[in-house]
Write a protein that binds this DNA or RNA. Sequence first.
DNA 1: TTTATAAGTAACCATCTTGGTTGTATTATA
DNA 2: TATAATACAACCAAGATGGTTACTTATAAA
Lengths: 137, 137
Amino acid sequence: MITKKAEYAIIILTELASHPKGTIITSKEIARNRSIPGNLVVQLITSLNEAGWTSGSRGPTGGIKLNSDPSFINLKQVIEKIDGPIGITRCLFSETPCQEKTHCSLRGVWSKAQQSMLTVLEKVTIKELAEGAPKDD
Amino acid sequence: MITKKAEYAIIILTELASHPKGTIITSKEIARNRSIPGNLVVQLITSLNEAGWTSGSRGPTGGIKLNSDPSFINLKQVIEKIDGPIGITRCLFSETPCQEKTHCSLRGVWSKAQQSMLTVLEKVTIKELAEGAPKDD
DNA sequence: TTTATAAGTAACCATCTTGGTTGTATTATA
DNA sequence: TATAATACAACCAAGATGGTTACTTATAAA
């Protein structure tokens, strides 16, 4: 399952992207605006910084800034950054197919189902979310 | 995530479907043939019986029998029977969209991504798996 | 130079889910 | 009546999840 933390991270980026480019917002404001537990915001920002999407400045007047073009950040990327590799089944986490014969014809199905889902998530960007209307293909 | 139990259930049905129609196999045999913990097979069969796909007969000479045409059982059905309703996000479990604005434009994305995955799983039947080659559209 | 305010970091924790076990009851055949 | 099978229910250990707590570091303003 896609975790709530990943969902929060997407919402945080969306909040940042919904302000003029270069705007600095405090984590507390983000938390308040989007109803996310304050300390979780800080925790998640760390990962977003790591990915290079955001950066923070400390002290009064400090806060978080979006560094990347939100049209280049897609949902799959954010989810994988927060949750780690996506796998709809345990099977898909192991590199090599298992011995079981049936198991393995299943593996193909899992893989195809997951890929189908990821394709959707790859197509949606933070920018689209910030504009409120993910385009409908 | 699709649980291992759901995967086991699919494998159990596949095992049953890979024998001539009407064949009775004991849960112990299924467990041995497919490397599934014996008691788990029994536990899962209960749910499969509930769905009407299988039925058991007790006593010596007893065992499990496939009741349904395996070409009418698809993977989505089995997964939902074992795991309950599928949801790639917590959001998709709540009936009503949440108040948060962004949250809600997200909901549409989750829904679409999930639907895309389910469409794949709906198309694959137990029969195809038993024949070893889920058809590639 | 001190103080307040902000991010950064790490450890921790309660709760829930998962995968599986154990134990007992029931049914049917030989 | 002994045995072999399913049926049923409770239980349990380990890991994931969502979140909290406490502490450190940096920086602007007073």
